[in-house]
Design a protein around this nucleic acid. Structure first.
Length: 873
RNA sequence: GGGCGGUUAGCUCAGUGGUAGAGCGUCUCGUUUACACCGAGAGGGUCGGGGGUUCGAAACCCUCACCGCCCACCA
């Protein structure tokens, strides 16, 4: 076999294995399997979307869970698919058409426009699937679904009809959030409030009954004055009490309007007077309803003024009109002042323009099963990770309002409502030629809330529903997670009456949000979002995955730094090289035999650490703490295995004694095979490559059982050996420090003398010498050093660095510092042990630990002082 | 206004009651045959402030400050 290259090359490894996995059908889920089921449905990316770091994080986590489950012997379904993203896709296509053909969708008409969208979809759709494959995602691609698949469309229609029949869906003329750019209604969840700098205009309304007297009102929206239908103040406000029942002149589109009182008005805000504009404000609408006021609408759907009575404003954009209205008022002396003002304005999440509250005929859903949805999370039938999202979820459900589900958009699921004259019918099929279907489509989320089960056929559902876990970013907890829970409870896809059979998933893991180094959200406009494919090209998919997972603490946002991906790549190379090292020393064994009699103490140590690593990984997985899993593996491989075990074991590996050599190689095989399997969910490609190169198993690593703890014999014996290793490693560190302090360059061999009464150390001297890069470590129980020879106290005794021309004064200074440091530490411990409360009340083990520490410090100190004092002469 | 996170080394973050940690960056040494995408060593922190609980607090409680999110109809 040719020797693999020094640098691991993901480009030649990753595509090769991915193609193989697909060819072998390794990701296919079999609903007829007798294995226990593990299932995940992908949060469907937008059909025309591109892979972002958010997707990388999210899908890496899902892949880790899926791959680990496969290794554990589960029948795994990771169901992929895409979302049609109604407004999002339509907006993208409209933008494209405006740019290339200078036309709007209305220029084409519904049918032709939808044809253009399909064209666009054919061209740009599904790219993200190929990108997910490059990341190594083990989805069952043969089951890919789309929210506009025929069957899915049918299901959405039926759900609509069903909910309408049950009385949960209704049509009504109500205040909704209007997006003037996309020209559609949006849901409350799609409105984000942003602080906006603007002005507070103080406008004077003349009292009809008392000419010359004015009522002053503070408003941010003078452009809606023409829609004012009343003036209102708080009933307890004495300032205006005498005006109740009188009238004011509306200053633009001059008209008499009544002066009324209402409880919602805050007397402390502005002048304590509100101009009531029911058509353009939610609060005002409610006041209007209470007082049976008329509704005057002066805005067009695209946010322009519609008021022929005021020609100066008619047709103007709402923001231009605001300035113009203020000007006009000023000219008439009706604007007393203008103050700079900052307030929160609702913006459309989609088009990023201010939302216009608007009275409109729309379809609404009164949510079913809200109490049940609260209960399943509260009672932990569904478990959230991290748990604090439960509260956010509960708050939303407790204050839930009806969901506006109709959209004035063409791309999406058409509403199954039919009209003939004044008649309305809600049903899937057309009632007849003379019936005209509702022009509107449904909110995209009204289709995605069925995703957890409408993506499965009957047989699949039987095996894999409810799904095991949902992995998602927390920003769609309301949009998607909560609604999927409600849908599951309402439509009972579990084919049973039991709640636990119908919930869409057992666990929900909320990922963090990836931010840039400055803590800003990743966004296209900021250009701070690195292209994951470029990262894959530079660092490999495995490097990207591992690097990202190691820095993604559960439940917290992630500050992205490419350096960390570089570390992931470096780790892959490290792994690669240490495997290559193994390969240089003969064939490896798939089932290495560990002979406890032959096993070196270093082997014992590394296997004990492997056991600890396996344990902590196990518990970290249970808590979805992927960064802990990654970090533990990183430390074990790099530090415990490479830096310590492999270096120490070189003595054995280069030994002429075949039995000794074989024992060390067996340990390496055992560890490497275990590490490959433990790392496989994080780094699928490189581990498969190593598995194959080192011939650790006949089949793919994907279905290899995760490693078990290694049995290491009796506890007392194990502890004694590990203590000895710790002492040796401690001595090595002390010795290396002496070398560095004495400025012996790294490539120079040094000589050490070890003064110890521990006889068993003799056989370890060659290893000690190797680790210290010494050509000799001599054992001398009665060694009397020359004055000024650098020395250190270690758990084994004292170590001396043999050098000529020792710097006595320098060494004395060094020892003085060392003595001072130890004295402080000793004092701390002694004080603690002097404290009666501590000795009486602290756990016995802790007290004993302190006694031991005191003993060690005292012994070290005695030896150090002797050494120092001998220098003072 | 309500709620939820966060504040630990220059940077990014681990660390939920018992001697303050990692990686990166910095400094010194090094091409010692797995690895310079590397190895060895060093320096660097009164754990945001203040109170409390405890024998003992980075951790638990209270409070304040600052940063970030989410929810809420102050025009």
């Amino acid at each position: 076999m040719a020797e693999p290259s020094k640098i691991y090359d993901p480009k030649s490894v990753e595509p090769k294995w991915y193609a193989r996995w697909i060819d072998d059908g390794n990701f296919k889920a079999d609903p007829r399997s007798s294995k226990p089921a593990f299932s995940i449905v992908i949060p469907p990316p937008n059909i025309t979307g591109m892979l972002t770091l958010g997707h990388v994080l999210n899908n890496t986590i899902q892949d880790i869970l899926a791959r680990r489950a496969r290794m554990q012997g589960f029948e795994v379904l990771w169901l992929p698919g895409m979302d049609h993203a109604g407004i999002g896709t339509q907006t993208a296509v409209e933008k494209h058409l405006r740019k290339t053909e200078k036309k709007t969708r209305h220029d084409y008409g519904r049918e032709e426009f939808l044809r253009r969208v399909l064209e666009w979809q054919d061209k740009h759709g599904g790219i993200i699937v190929e990108q997910l494959k490059r990341l190594g995602c083990s989805c069952d691609w043969s089951r890919q679904r789309y929210t506009l698949d025929d069957a899915y469309v049918q299901a959405v229609q039926e759900v609509f009809v069903d909910l309408h029949k049950k009385g949960f869906i209704y049509r009504g003329r109500r205040m909704i959030n209007w997006d003037p750019a996309a020209q559609t209604a949006v849901s409350d969840e799609e409105v984000v409030s942003k602080p906006q700098k603007g002005n507070l205009y103080f406008v004077r309304y003349e009292i009809v009954e008392e000419p010359g007297r004015f009522l002053e009102v503070a408003t941010t929206r003078p452009e809606t004055i023409m829609a004012d239908v009343a003036m209102a103040f708080h009933p307890s406000d004495k300032r205006y009490a005498d005006l109740l029942g009188k009238h004011a002149w509306r200053p633009l589109a001059r008209e008499k309007i009544p002066i009324i009182t209402d409880d919602v008005i805050d007397p402390k805000f502005g002048t304590g007077v509100l101009k009531v504009t029911p058509a353009h404000d939610n609060v005002d609408f409610e006041i209007g309803t209470r007082h049976k006021l008329p509704i005057v609408d002066v805005l067009t759907p695209n946010g322009r003024i519609d008021c022929p009575a005021v020609p100066e404003l008619h047709g103007l954009d709402r923001f231009k009109a605001r300035e113009k209205a203020a000007e006009m008022l000023k000219e008439h002396g009706l604007l007393s002042k203008t103050e700079p003002y900052e307030n929160n304005v609702g913006f459309s999440d989609r088009s990023d323009v201010p939302i216009e509250p608007r009275l409109s005929e729309q379809w609404f859903l009164r949510y079913p099963k809200t109490n049940e949805a609260l209960a399943v999370v509260r009672d932990h039938l569904i478990r959230f990770f991290p748990v604090h999202w439960e509260k956010v979820y509960a708050q939303w459900l407790e204050n839930i309002r009806d969901w506006c589900i109709s959209r004035q958009v063409w791309w999406g699921h058409r509403i199954p409502a039919w009209y003939r004259g004044d008649e309305i019918r809600v049903q899937v099929a057309s009632p007849g030629d003379e019936w005209k279907q509702d022009d509107d489509t449904l909110d995209t989320w009204f289709s995605s809330w069925l995703w957890a089960y409408e993506t499965m056929d009957e047989e699949t559902r039987k095996k894999f529903y409810p799904t095991s876990v949902l992995v998602t970013a927390p920003d769609i907890i309301f949009f998607w997670v909560a609604r999927m829970i409600i849908a599951g409870l309402e439509f009972k896809p579990g084919n049973s009456e039991r709640v636990e059979d119908n919930i869409p998933f057992h666990d929900v893991f909320f990922t963090g949000l990836i931010r840039d180094k400055q803590g800003r959200k990743m966004s296209k406009s900021l250009g701070n979002s690195p292209d994951p494919l470029v990262l894959i090209d530079s660092y490999g998919a495995d490097g990207l995955r591992f690097g990202l997972m190691r820095i993604a603490p559960s439940g917290q946002d992630i500050a992205f730094d490419e350096k960390q991906i570089e570390e992931g790549r470096n780790f892959a190379t490290k792994l690669w090289n240490v495997a290559r090292f193994r390969q240089m020393h003969g064939p490896s064994s798939a089932e290495p035999k560990i002979d406890m009699n032959q096993l070196s103490i270093y082997g014992v140590e590394v296997l004990a650490r492997l056991n600890e690593t396996i344990d902590s990984i196990e518990s970290a997985y249970r808590a979805y703490e992927f960064n802990t899993v990654a970090q533990r593996l990183y430390e074990f491989v790099w530090s415990d295995y490479c830096d310590w075990f492999v270096e120490a074991a070189k003595t054995e590996i280069f030994s002429d004694d075949e039995a000794i050599k074989k024992s060390a190689l067996s340990v390496m095989d055992l560890v490497l095979s275990a590490v490959a399997r433990l790392l496989h969910p994080f780094m699928p490609h490189i581990t498969e490559e190593l598995w194959s190169l080192l011939q650790f198993g006949k089949g793919s690593i994907q279905f290899a059982m995760p490693p078990m703890r290694v049995k290491l014999g009796v506890d007392a014996d194990l502890a004694r050996k590990r203590e000895l290793v710790a002492a040796i490693y401690g001595t090595v560190q002390a010795g290396r420090n002496l070398r560095a302090e004495a400025k012996i360059s790294s490539n120079k061999k040094a000589q050490f003398i070890l003064r110890t009464d521990k006889k068993e150390i003799e056989r370890e001297l060659p290893t000690l010498a190797r680790l210290l890069n010494a050509d000799e470590v001599r054992l001398d129980q009665h060694h009397k050093p020359e004055p000024g020879v650098p020395m250190a106290v270690t758990p084994l005794g004292e170590i001396f660095l043999s050098i000529s021309g020792a710097d006595t004064a320098g060494e004395r200074d060094r020892l003085d510092k060392e003595v001072a440091r130890l004295e402080t530490e000793l004092e701390t411990v002694v004080n603690k042990l002097k404290n009666k409360s501590f000795v009486d009340r602290a756990p016995a083990a802790v007290v004993e630990e302190h006694r031991q520490r005191q003993k060690n410090f005292s012994e070290q100190l005695t030896k150090l002082k002797q050494a120092r004092d001998s220098l003072s002469g």
